[in-house]
């Protein structure tokens, strides 16, 4: 915006947004007050927080958290796709089972589900000839609970993704002689992926933090459990909570960057110059769409 109008040479006075300026100053003042009070707080030993973040014990917990997230998301995606395809099938039994699955696992709290699978032995002491607690140790119970819960949510995400694809795509594929399975795999799912990925990224980030719920079991050493067991007895409660938050934030950031690249991969054929519809593009300012 040039201050001089090119055609007439008269000066143009842009509107001054005083309100914006005042709002920015107020928010900055409040933020600095917050940072100062946190930074100067002598109840927290920041050196200790740093040591907690970098300790081997913490890093092991971080690894378990990543592992649980990846297992739950992978199993959830597979389960969710099966459930979504079942839910869209012409078979009323498959439709019913799919509906029941999502209804049950979305309808009960994840915390309850984790406790249930961990305590399964109280309900089924033996699975076939084997001891339940041997077949499903604590880690497996945690992974199972997270996976089943995630599967129910992924089922809905995959279903909407599949339903968003124009039926003309299926007709074109079928008229070329592709079988229903080939049509799903080659034509429908790859396009549905584009729609499925952003909410799945959301789910992954949500799952990353939901894994901390397994700390109720106490014997699955994810990030939070590790830190709790190690540092609570030493009275470093706030320190370990800061340490945990730090790692959850780091992991969330890494997963978000991964999401950006996956979205780009499945957005092939849809990108137009100048469009910036993906949330992660906006988030990281990597916005130059590939033509």
């Amino acid at each position: 915006m040039s201050p001089i109008d090119n055609q007439t040479g008269r000066q143009v006075v842009p509107l001054r947004h005083y309100g914006r300026f005042v709002a920015a100053v107020v928010v900055l003042l409040l933020l600095s007050a917050l940072f100062i009070s946190v930074g100067r707080n002598d109840k927290v030993n920041w050196g200790t927080v740093g040591k907690i973040i970098t300790s081997t014990i913490t890093l092991r917990g971080v690894w378990i958290t990543i592992l649980l997230t990846l297992i739950a998301m992978f199993a959830g995606l597979v389960l969710g796709t099966l459930s979504a395809v079942g839910g869209l099938s012409k078979n009323p039994v498959l439709r019913g089972v799919s509906l029941g699955f999502t209804w049950f696992f979305r309808g009960t709290p994840l915390l309850v589900q984790i406790l249930f699978w961990y305590n399964l032995a109280l309900f089924f002491p033996r699975i076939g000839p084997w001891d339940t607690n041997e077949v499903i140790p604590a880690f497996a119970a945690a992974a199972l609970a997270l996976s089943l819960n995630e599967g129910a949510y992924m089922s809905e995400i995959v279903r909407t993704g599949i339903q968003a694809i124009d039926p003309g795509q299926t007709e074109a594929a079928q008229s070329l002689g592709l079988t229903p399975v080939q049509t799903l795999r080659r034509v429908v799912l790859p396009q549905a992926m584009r729609i499925i990925i952003p909410p799945t990224g959301n789910e992954t980030i949500s799952m990353l933090k939901s894994t901390s719920l397994v700390s109720v079991i106490g014997s699955v050493y994810d990030l939070l459990t590790r830190l709790q067991i190690t540092y609570r007895p030493k009275g470093l409660v706030i320190e370990y909570l800061f340490g945990a938050s730090f790692w959850y934030l780091v992991l969330t950031t890494i997963f978000s960057i991964g999401q950006y690249f996956i979205e780009k991969r499945f957005g092939r054929g849809f990108d137009r110059p100048g469009s910036a519809r993906s949330s992660s593009k906006r988030m990281f300012g990597l916005g130059k769409a590939v033509a």
Partner: peptide, 19 residues
């Protein structure tokens, strides 16, 4: 599906695979 291999179809809305 096998029977359809011998029949080509062209649609009003093209229905090309956009990906």
């Amino acid at each position: 599906a096998a029977r359809r291999q011998n029949i080509g179809m062209v649609f009003q809305r093209f229905n090309l695979f956009p990906h």
